[in-house]
């Protein structure tokens, strides 16, 4: 059981919105580094070892690629390292590339974590109240996609057993796929119309529809929300006061001379909170298991 997955969808959504917005739009190197490390830690806690390492490798390569390509486009900066075709490759451009690469990789990692924790049914619940119809369409789609995929397999098997499914040349195969999909389309349309009838039979379309869900708001949800809300607020205040403004060009600012203490500390707490909870939970679990 993942500790974070048990939190209320609204809390999770708020948390990831706060982290993602900061990670995407604050370009201060200190916060970027924090975000990167936090994302890696959480991802490690959530994913299997194999998945983790392959994704980590990808992230690092991505960050490196961005670092190395940025100087080719951008020749700003005052500290030239060397020249290519008469254009300077500057230290600032490399540094900015590293920052952006770091940001991109960390945002991708955060998104992966978000996807693992924030499953389709949570999204459905969250948009259920303001957008009941969209939520219903979303729910139907989540049900239809695996069903249609399964049916496509059945159709192509049935067609194959009639000798109507060519598997030779590319054009034959394309034609077979086209036929299968055309049949699938008929199948799903007639299926969906029956589903619509069943919905009407159970009173869909009456006025004053309500929304049912199984999520319960616990005390831990309040604590999580207050904690992440406070830290996000501090980051926001710091942002509004301009402490997080940072210039990479022409010369990179020396951030250690005027460190954004408040925002840095708050964001650090924010990004490490979930990995801390995950680790705590797994230790607790080990303890409980030892008592069984």
């Amino acid at each position: 059981m993942k500790a974070l997955a048990g939190y209320h969808p609204a809390v999770l959504f708020f948390y990831f919105a706060a982290v993602l917005l900061t990670a995407m739009f604050v370009r201060h190197p200190v916060l970027l580094a924090e975000s990167f490390v936090g994302a890696i830690l959480l991802f490690a806690a959530l994913e299997s070892r194999k998945q983790f390492f392959s994704q980590l490798l990808f992230s690092v390569l991505l960050a490196l690629a961005v670092t190395l390509t940025n100087p080719l486009f951008s020749h700003n900066g005052v500290t030239p390292l060397f020249f290519i075709n008469g254009n300077p490759v500057t230290l600032e451009a490399v540094f900015y590339g590293a920052a952006i690469g770091c940001m991109t990789a960390s945002v991708l990692l955060w998104c992966r974590c978000f996807q693992i924790l924030f499953t389709g049914d949570k999204l459905m619940y969250l948009i259920g109240r303001p957008l009941p119809r969209v939520s219903l369409v979303f729910s139907l789609t989540l049900r239809f996609v695996p069903l249609f995929l399964q049916k496509r397999r059945e159709i192509s098997q049935a067609q194959k057993a009639m000798g109507l499914f060519g598997s030779g040349s590319i054009s034959e195969r394309a034609h077979s796929l086209f036929r299968t999909c055309s049949a699938l389309f008929d199948w799903s349309l007639s299926y969906a119309m029956e589903t619509a009838a069943a919905m009407k039979a159970r009173g869909y379309g009456l006025a004053h529809r309500t929304n049912f869900h199984l999520y319960v708001w616990r005390r831990s949800d309040s604590i999580f929300l207050i904690f992440s809300g406070m830290t996000a607020l501090f980051v926001a205040i710091s942002f509004a006061r301009g402490e997080l403004r940072y210039a990479y060009y022409p010369a990179a600012q020396r951030f250690w001379e005027q460190p954004p203490l408040l925002a840095g500390a708050a964001f650090l707490l924010l990004v490490f909170l979930p990995s801390f909870l995950e680790i705590k939970e797994s230790l607790k679990w080990k303890y409980y298991v030892s008592k069984i």
């Binding site: 919905m199 159970r202 009173g203 869909y204 379309g205 009456l206 006025a207 004053h208 529809r209 309500t210 929304n211 049912f212 869900h213």
Partner: peptide
């Protein structure tokens, strides 16, 4: 689903 349509409370 049916009860949601009838507008019952949670």
């Amino acid at each position: 689903f049916g009860l949601e349509n009838l507008g019952l409370s949670r």
